[in-house]
């Protein structure tokens, strides 16, 4: 059986005057049915742009210049804009980072929900209303009948994200792309949202692509992890293996940067420097300037080296994995 979503060598560039900004530069991964794939990386690593590319929501000056995206075996880039629209919000749904901004402030919640149903199938306003009300109830919004008639500003941030999730799931999608949906929320609300999505995955067999920069979210939630750096995938594998035994220095650094994993009083581990310019990245390993494992070989850009438990874009992945196993 083919994967739910299969991305191969995706390249999404933003054409600026100074040259193409290669936000996504040859990314490949897949999402299976009933699986949560976490896509992890810093800001500017291209993880959000990857999600938007799948949705067909890259606006000018952005452009998908290469690679393929297959959704249930269907080539997304070959679809007409109308066919893509019919897929969006229907088979592939997306939720965004800032719940304060994703709902239209001047339209009532029921309007924003019902239109989502009616964009994809013929249904009476009354039937749609009932379905939407039930959807609100399912994501844990109290007094849904009343809340249907409310405006977004009458909800708290966490409640709004629930509404956004309820909208995204209205048409029972096969794939949910979540672009840092819990980043702007309190930890307690975050846990509730995670549990909600987890339940829906188990219940419906939906595939999830969960874009985040927060590794602590990933640990108990995702099945597999893709780590992105500077527009490419640098590590991939099952979540337990990646977190306990990272095989790329960048992943190692990311995990070290989570405060709770450090010894109390010990200086916090950090990755020195910042992400390289996405315009001109050169031919060396992109992480080399920030890497403490770097040596002469790193002048060559490493391929994604497959192993039994995933893949790593590091010439010395075995050495990194060995070190990460030792107690700090």
């Amino acid at each position: 059986m083919s994967a739910l979503l299969e991305i191969a060598d995706l390249q999404t560039h933003f054409l600026a005057e100074r040259g193409a900004v290669k936000a996504v530069d040859g990314v490949s991964f897949k999402v299976n049915r009933g699986e949560v794939l976490a896509v992890v990386g810093e800001s500017g690593s291209g993880k959000s742009v990857t999600g938007l590319s799948v949705m067909g929501l890259i606006g000018k000056p952005g452009k998908i210049v290469g690679g393929s995206m297959r959704f249930q075996g269907q080539d997304l880039s070959a679809l007409s804009p109308e066919a893509m629209r019919q897929l969006r919000g229907n088979r592939i749904a997306m939720i965004f980072q800032d719940p304060m901004m994703t709902l239209n402030p001047v339209l009532r919640v029921d309007t924003q929900m019902i239109e989502t149903l009616r964009a994809h199938r013929k249904i009476s306003r009354k039937d749609a209303w009932t379905i939407c009300r039930d959807a609100l109830a399912r994501v844990g919004i109290p007094a849904p009948d009343e809340r249907m008639r409310s405006y977004p500003h009458q909800f708290s941030g966490g409640m709004r994200q629930r509404v956004a999730i309820a909208i995204a799931l209205l048409n029972d999608p096969d794939l949910l792309i979540a672009d840092e949906p819990t980043t702007a929320l309190d930890v307690t609300i975050q846990a509730q949202i995670l549990a909600l999505v987890q339940g829906l995955v188990a219940e419906r067999g939906m595939g999830v692509m969960w874009v985040t920069h927060d590794l602590s979210v990933v640990a108990g939630f995702a099945d597999r992890v893709v780590v992105m750096y500077a527009g490419e995938v640098v590590e991939e594998g099952p979540v337990d293996r990646v977190i306990s035994r990272p095989a790329h220095p960048y992943t190692l650094g990311l995990i070290g940067s989570v405060p709770s994993r450090n010894k109390r009083g010990a200086p916090l581990m950090q990755i020195p420097g910042s992400t390289p310019s996405p315009v001109n990245r050169g031919t060396a390993c992109r992480f080399k300037p920030r890497c403490r494992f770097a040596r002469a070989k790193c002048e060559d850009h490493p391929p994604l080296i497959e192993s039994a438990t995933g893949a790593s874009r590091c010439w010395f992945h075995e050495e990194v994995a060995l070190e990460s196993r030792e107690p700090a």
Partner: peptide, 25 residues
């Protein structure tokens, strides 16, 4: 703005995005 992008992500037709979501604002 994000809510226009979200409206697109919902699969709304361009006409509705412009004449309802955009125009009301």
């Amino acid at each position: 703005q994000d809510f226009i992008r979200f409206a697109r992500a919902k699969g709304l037709r361009e006409r509705r995005i412009i004449f309802i979501h955009l125009l009301r604002n």
